[in-house]
Write a protein that binds this DNA or RNA. Structure first.
Lengths: 340, 340
DNA sequence: ATGAAAGCGCTAACAC
DNA sequence: GTGTTAGCGCTTTCAT
């Protein structure tokens, strides 16, 4: 009943009448111990309520079994799903997730210190504000890093990405094949890499069809921001026939704004496309045409890439791209007659 | 450039020409060191790329600064938000979240072993399959536990809960005041505590108005399950005038099913209420009448309760209830004329 | 197969 | 204010 001090392998050794190293051996996989001592030790351990201390083990093994996952709290809405899946895949590999939030660039230093201090086996970064310099620092300390949906050209890091360009090409192709000519791009927050990638993807896809200088309005990935920025835009500008939104939440916000406040129909008057394939995108009221990210495969790949890097530090970094999958809903129709 | 061995405080001490403990002092808050040595140490540390090793520190301090958060992956849809907020509050307290997933009862043993091994400072459990026995075990090892939205009567644990009874009373009162008499309860998964609490809350609230034996159908908290179970029910039974759903996702599924496949209107023909106050609940197409959980306050309270328990092990466990907040949308209307 | 002894990298008395 | 010393609880040679 001593509450101050915890039960150690010495206590167990004493109670079992064996040496401390015997106890240690019992709790290590692939070490030979005689049946007799093993039983004595197990018995004593149970009586005393002994649990091996992983912290002490880490100090010697130089491996904590922990993977730092860095997220930003106001990221794209599908991040929670990504986090849950990463966690499961990491658990399968018998490691644990240590969570870090990075919202502002000025927290970077502190978060990095923490991550180093905790001696994690590797890092998966889902966040912006993770600059080339951070990557270099991790490399210097031999901590493997995998970026999720973020590329750092010329800074050899492994990354796992959805091919946003290809996804937006599919979406734009559909709009163009429906004879749309007047577009509006609703982009995500300017400091998000994914948002930037999708914006560029949309621009390039439009360019490929000869549409230059498409107007861009900026939301923050949220439903409300979409309604606000579309409303503001509509008050001073002629409406497009198609809106390309950088994620599904904003696309749904745009649809509601069009229907409720602009008094128009989707898709008859205005077509809307999104990105992500969140569950709400196929709800009956929206039936969004969008591109879904293969989250399951991407998260699995991220974890496997990281584990591989941890076990074989010499393998070169690789970038793996996954194509998005087009989901044709009911939010795109032929462009209304053009009155130009 | 030695990659095998990391730099320790001894290396820094050697380079700076001071003792190892001098280095240690520089990296500990509230310890006095002369400006001169501090500078020498900092300089040497930067040159060598020294980072204090938190693992070694933990071994002595008996505090890892880690809090285990146990989630189940197929939990209610608002858990990701809860997790993100818990993480932020924990970070503010200068601790870190170590994530564990507990999906099946038979993983319990393993997860418990892990949590013990990692010597976490405390545990926040958001999961089912967390039996009284688990609580007892943690108590035996003096590891503070806080349950989130889960009560274990007679097993003194601290918990932070939304008052589901009160929330459902508000919802039922609204339906009754709109003259509804024919109800249907759409409950969540049977192995979820929250779902059970909400089911009981609905039953009791109806009972208080004299409605007994209300029919219950079971979904799994998801949009799709709501559509399926409502569709199956509607094929063989007369429809109610009001459906009480155990969460918003199912309420939205019910609304879509009613509108699209049953050919009826919400709220004119059938009223629907939900629970949670997820962001989609106020989207224009649904405008759900629901009760929102004060997630911010609940997560904050959970963390504060835990920290308090960590710092003062003698404080008695407490259960804190938070009332839900009624959000009146546009999914409830007067009951259609009763033809009985 | 088992025990003794030497650390892993740090903190915390204790002298000076 | 600084250095010395003794651990924290374990793993890992090295003898036996």
């Amino acid at each position: 009943m001593n509450k101050k001090t915890r039960v150690t392998s010495y206590d167990v050794a004493h109670a079992a009448g064996v040496s401390q190293s015997a106890v240690s051996r019992v709790y290590r996989p692939g070490v030979s111990v005689s049946k007799k001592t093993r039983e004595k030790v197990i018995k004593a351990a149970e009586d005393l309520g002994y649990k091996p201390n992983a912290i002490a083990r880490m100090l010697i093994n130089r491996s904590t079994g922990m993977v730092a996952v860095i997220i930003s709290s106001r990221a794209n809405v599908n991040f929670p799903e990504v986090l849950a899946q990463l966690n499961k895949h990491i658990a399968v590999k018998n490691k644990r997730v240590l969570l870090f939030t990075l919202d502002d660039a000025d927290q970077l230093e502190m978060v990095m210190e923490q991550i180093f201090a905790y001696q994690v086996d590797g890092v998966i970064a889902l966040t912006a504000h993770f600059e080339p310099d951070s990557v270099t620092q991790f490399a210097k300390h031999n901590i493997p890093v995998v970026l999720y949906n973020r590329e750092l050209p010329d800074h050899s890091v492994s990354s796992v990405c959805c091919n946003h360009d290809q996804g937006l090409r599919m979406l734009v192709d559909i709009l163009v094949s429906h004879h749309h000519q007047h577009f509006l791009i609703m982009a995500g927050p300017k400091d998000s890499d994914v948002a930037r990638a999708r914006l560029n993807g949309a621009r390039n896809a439009l360019l490929a069809h000869g549409f230059t200088d498409t107007t861009v309005i900026y939301g923050d990935y949220s439903y409300d921001s979409a309604r606000e920025c579309l409303s503001a835009y509509a008050q001073k500008n002629p409406l497009p026939t198609a809106i390309i939104c950088s994620n599904d939440s904003m696309a749904i916000g745009a649809i509601d704004e069009i229907r409720q406040n602009l008094g128009l129909r989707v898709p008859e008057d205005i077509s809307v496309v999104g990105f992500d394939g969140i569950s709400a995108s196929c709800w009956h009221s929206y039936q969004l045409t969008t591109v879904s990210q293969p989250t399951y495969f991407m998260t699995k790949a991220a974890v496997e890439t990281l584990i591989n890097l941890i076990e074989n530090p010499e393998v070169p970094p690789e970038t793996r791209y996954w194509p998005g999958k087009l989901i044709e809903g009911n939010s795109v129709a032929a462009a209304p007659r053009d009155d130009d």
